[in-house]
């Protein structure tokens, strides 16, 4: 049965890439290169170092933004989850942010902070932070009452209850929030490269489109999607291994 699953995965990849290849050969559009052309462009750009420099550029705002969002988001989330007052004060902000199309803030951020790294980092932050805050505060609030009672009856201090009970109990959901935040951060990072200034992978996409080098454009898009999906899958695997046996739950968007 292991073989069947693997075989079908391969078959499904062959079917999709085959359809791409055929559609490119027909061609359905002058702007639709074949799969093989695109892969050739990907290999070429990988070998000549274009991809490496591009990703160094693209991943910078992503990494900084995600780090800031994770740090601030978990801190605010803990705070909101522990205090009824801060829950009342801050939760509505993040609930609205989670539902709202925050991408609309980008033109304003560009006006206020220019077209540099700051704006891009902020774009990643506003995309990634709400889900991290909401997951963290929800997880803290939902710590099983009997765990906390157990801590108190065995004379744990408030700090011990937070560090030894609440945070470990909440960490699977916090981690899931981080994963969702990183996923949203990828959207933000690419959006900012396409909308604010073309740098990194966004530059390859924009530039090759302008000179009608479609294989390179498709290759760049293929690579960023592949990278994001592989990275997020890796995180999910780590999550499963790390929190085996803990009950798990998600605050989804």
């Amino acid at each position: 049965m292991q073989n069947r699953a693997l075989l079908l995965k391969l078959l499904s990849a062959v079917l999709l890439f085959g359809a791409w290849e055929i559609a490119g050969r027909v061609p359905v559009s002058f702007a639709f290169p074949t799969f093989l052309e695109s892969m050739a462009a990907l290999v070429r750009m990988t070998l000549d170092g274009t991809m490496l420099t591009a990703y160094a550029e693209t991943l910078k705002p992503l990494a900084i933004g995600v780090a800031i969002s994770a740090f601030l988001g978990i801190a605010i989330g803990l705070w909101v989850g522990l205090s009824k007052f801060f829950d009342w004060l801050f939760s509505p902000i993040f609930i609205v942010m989670q539902a709202a199309p925050l991408a609309a803030l980008i033109p304003l951020l560009v006006l206020a902070y220019g077209i540099g790294l700051t704006s891009k980092v902020l774009v990643v932050c506003i995309m990634a932070m709400p889900v991290i805050v909401l997951n963290t505060s929800g997880a803290v609030r939902n710590t099983p009452e009997s765990y906390k009672e157990m801590g108190r009856s065995f004379l744990a201090s408030d700090l011990s209850i937070l560090v030894r009970i609440i945070i470990p109990a909440a960490s699977p959901v916090i981690f899931a929030g981080l994963r969702l935040g990183i996923s949203a951060g990828f959207i933000g990072a690419i959006l900012s490269e396409l909308k604010i200034t073309p740098t990194g992978v966004g530059d390859i996409i924009t530039y090759s489109r302008s000179i009608a080098d479609y294989p390179s454009m498709y290759a760049a898009i293929f690579s960023i999607i592949l990278l994001a999906v592989l990275f997020l899958n890796l995180l999910e695997k780590i999550e499963l291994a790390l929190f085996k046996g803990n009950e798990r739950g998600y605050v989804s968007d």
């Binding site: 009997s146 004379l155 011990s160």
Partner: peptide, 30 residues
């Protein structure tokens, strides 16, 4: 709560991320 009383919970209240020995030693650790 004080050191003169110990509680046994209906739903066990074991910490799922801690091994049996760490769960048993929790009260002593505190």
């Amino acid at each position: 709560p004080g050191p003169d009383r110990a509680f046994v919970f209906q739903d066990f209240a074991l910490l799922p991320w801690a091994s049996v020995i760490r769960n048993v030693a929790f009260g002593l650790e505190m």
